[in-house]
Design a protein around this nucleic acid. Structure first.
Lengths: 215, 215
DNA sequence: ACTTGTCCTGTCATGCCGTCAGCTTACCGA
DNA sequence: TCGGTAAGCTGACGGCATGACAGGACAAGT
């Protein structure tokens, strides 16, 4: 099922090749964290990995291609985010708990992968379908769970009829993602991370249920 | 007060020079809309402007420098966003109106400047202070108005004591900005722009007042 | 026409990109 | 043990963008 790893010119990669490939990915990942996306050069990645630029091009068509690969690995890990909402309740104190844990998990995931997620976000915003699909893949698990929760509350008459669950869920997820990547910006507004979290959870809870949480 | 426009080597720019400079900025702006940030080259911008790369470097240290210039012009225009909240009420039907108009104005502004705002967002997320300050400058007007509104409702006991106005306002503004730049993503979730707007307004209203709007 | 200061570009050294041919290394079957 | 074969890597090269400079074109005032 997992298609074999192949080089650009079609050969299948063996043990050593895969190791080199992974090392290049790791080094690229590191470079993305330490320097602006625009300034990341193939030659620097290759140097850092102790190999030559030509080797890089053996495994990836270009920097973008390698970034997609990293993002893909991360997306797989991101599926775990759905677990934050699996079988959770949005009613009463449990609802407040759910909101808080969702926010925590989300911020944590984003902080861990911030460099690569920045690039994915940019690519998606620029209209590149590959990045855009990848972004979906990561957010979709959380998004659809949230949308389901809203729709369910709606069907029980606890949320107004004219609310669009997908729109609400999408907006909340987008908010979490954006706030996570601009956490530093909040310090400048005088908001420290520990203060941010409960307020975000409040917004999520309000958005999903339409009500203030009971703590 | 408006410091004279200067070339990189310190000369003051005359009328013709300023025109060339502005033309370069316009062409860069256009390129940013049509191709990925990473692929925008000085030589292309110069060609499009009917001039040479050397001319570009006479007015700007690099692409980034020119982008900052464009963003600065836009930030000035962005101050108008504050007007969307000037003297507005968040109570009753007027509150719902306020939320809707804020969302509309915000989405409109973002759509108009999406290309440059993408780059500013990236720069800010990467930790570049210049971009980061610029982003603040644009968002601050709206953000502080919103925070004031929350604080005022809070002082009248209409909002819980333990809410942090700045955190709520910042999160909402960040949400609006992010949703605006990923509007296309919502279509893929089956949410069309016209459906998006009222739901965003709902979230803003909920966030600011803690209550559902009365329509 | 001459001077002055602004404005633009030809040119050049430097460095990265992306490709290829060819060398080295590892594995495998006889 | 010994080729044979495919994987793995790199030096080298043409092409292009970068960024700096010096010098020429141009407009305005005298």
């Amino acid at each position: 099922m997992t298609g074999q790893v192949r080089t650009v010119d079609g050969r299948v990669a063996g043990r050593r090749g895969q190791a080199t490939r992974q090392k290049l990915l790791d080094c690229l990942s590191e470079m993305l964290s330490s320097s602006p996306y625009r300034d990341v050069k193939v030659i620097d990645v290759a140097r850092k990995a102790g190999t030559s630029p030509a080797t890089f091009y053996q495994y990836f068509p270009d920097v973008e291609g390698a970034v997609l690969e990293i993002a893909d690995q991360m997306a797989a890990e991101g599926a775990a985010l759905a677990g934050l909402l699996e079988g959770r309740s949005w009613v009463g104190k449990a609802g407040w708990q759910t909101a808080q844990e969702l926010v925590d998990g989300f911020l944590e995931f984003w902080r861990k992968h911030d460099a690569i997620l920045r690039v994915v976000d940019l690519g998606a915003a620029e209209g590149d379908k590959r990045f855009y699909k990848l972004r979906m893949k990561i957010l979709n698990s959380v998004n659809s769970s949230l949308a389901d929760a809203v729709a369910e509350l709606q069907s029980r008459g606890k949320v107004d009829k004219d609310v669009n669950p997908a729109a609400i869920a999408g907006s909340l997820v987008t908010m979490l993602a954006a706030v996570a990547s601009h956490q530093k910006g909040f310090s400048a507004w005088g908001v420290k991370p520990p203060e941010l979290r409960p307020n975000l959870a409040l917004l999520v809870h309000l958005g999903v249920t339409g009500k203030k949480p009971s703590r």
